[in-house]
Design a protein around this nucleic acid. Structure first.
Lengths: 205, 205
DNA sequence: CCCCCCGCTGACCGCTCGGTCGGAGGATGG
DNA sequence: CCATCCTCCGACCGAGCGGTCAGCGGGGGG
């Protein structure tokens, strides 16, 4: 029986050994590169330099590996961004900080981001999906609240808040499809430029 | 030998029988729903009410089916949008038309759009990929030219054109991840609202 | 009338997939 | 010195995959 399952049953805290961290890191890299279906358990084992059986000693199945990556990445994103909002900043500055912090997160945890963002397609286990959606909703709720605050403070004109939130998230979420590291601006700089474009608009004054 | 291959060898124009159209339509629907790897040739055959062998009578392999969908969709998108740009319109109106036309296209050919957009992950045959990338580049070049025209005409402030193009395309390309038909605004209306937000900006005057 | 082409089928192939199982081997504690 | 636990492996399994092949049956041209 896999360790994680044992711990879940016994109520023991889910700790994470070095070996598990290695497996999760290599898996994230492979998932990001080749997709979920394009990555076999054999690939993961080989990348870690271990036997395939050992994967099943640490995780119950392939889905659990992916779920751990996706959930961890989504939860960490929310906390990462929330921690970086300037307490005393103006509402627009806080929206800007939300965007640049997301850019930083994208740069720092790129494999995890891509792996967890890309492979929504076959959501196999809805139970596992659920908790992740909760964190994603918190993240989306955060940007909406920041926008609403900016509207209330009179810094933003009275826009459609959910739609504006989607506009902001779209620009950030699509970055992984064209961004190439070590080339051009950093993700945070791109996010900052996006904020400038959206905040000030394109219209010449 | 598959008919398409025969035609390619003989130089005959690639015509498309009713059966082929049916296969392409069902495949697009399945690819959009379950992804490329999540759709088997058996699934496609069953959805069409035919035997699996018949698929190989009309197409050489699974990749060719997908490539036909992806290439057709990408090429059609460019032509669809270009045809809908108002000839005498102002530069900003032409940018707006680009966005709403893309929204219309998304609504009309949703399965094909999703199928061809989502499954970049395993680009198996680069030769087949190539022509499609050409049409995608034309499409992206189109929005950049429209933006540049608006800047030159003094309607837009002097923005970073490639980045602004990516901003616009991001909002449109991400739509399929959250849009639900028969609920809320149409894609064209959403695209129009996006244009308003980006053009006028969020800042209160 | 015959023959050939064309749309079409069902049985089959080799392969890779996710996942299982019994046990090896070393450290730890009594 | 033995029992136990933990990490780890190689061999193996059934299933589903993409793709092949020999052949069926009916309609049109010689």
């Amino acid at each position: 029986m896999a360790r994680a399952a044992v711990k879940a049953v016994t109520g023991e805290a889910t700790d994470t050994s070095d070996r598990m961290l290695q497996i999760l890191a290599e898996s994230a890299r492979l998932f990001a590169t080749n997709g979920y279906d394009g990555t076999s358990m054999r690939d993961i084992a080989e990348a870690c330099g271990i036997s395939k059986s050992l994967l099943y000693h640490h995780f119950t199945d392939k889905d659990e590996i992916y779920a751990r990556i996706a959930l961890g990445s989504t939860q960490r994103l929310f906390e990462f961004v929330q921690d970086r909002l300037p307490e005393g900043g103006s509402p627009p500055d806080r929206v800007r900080a939300f965007m640049t912090a997301t850019g930083d997160y994208f740069q720092r945890y790129r494999s995890n981001w891509i792996a967890s963002t890309a492979a929504f397609w076959s959501d196999p286990e809805l139970r596992r999906h659920k908790e992740r959606v909760m964190w994603r909703d918190r993240y989306e709720g955060l940007i909406r609240r920041l926008i609403q605050d900016a509207v209330d403070a009179g810094d933003f004109r009275p826009v459609d808040v959910p739609l504006t939130g989607r506009l902001v998230l779209s620009t950030l979420n699509w970055m992984h499809r064209w961004y190439r590291p070590d080339k051009g601006m950093t993700p945070a700089q791109i996010a900052d430029s996006y904020f400038d474009l959206i905040f000030n608009g394109l219209k010449a004054r």
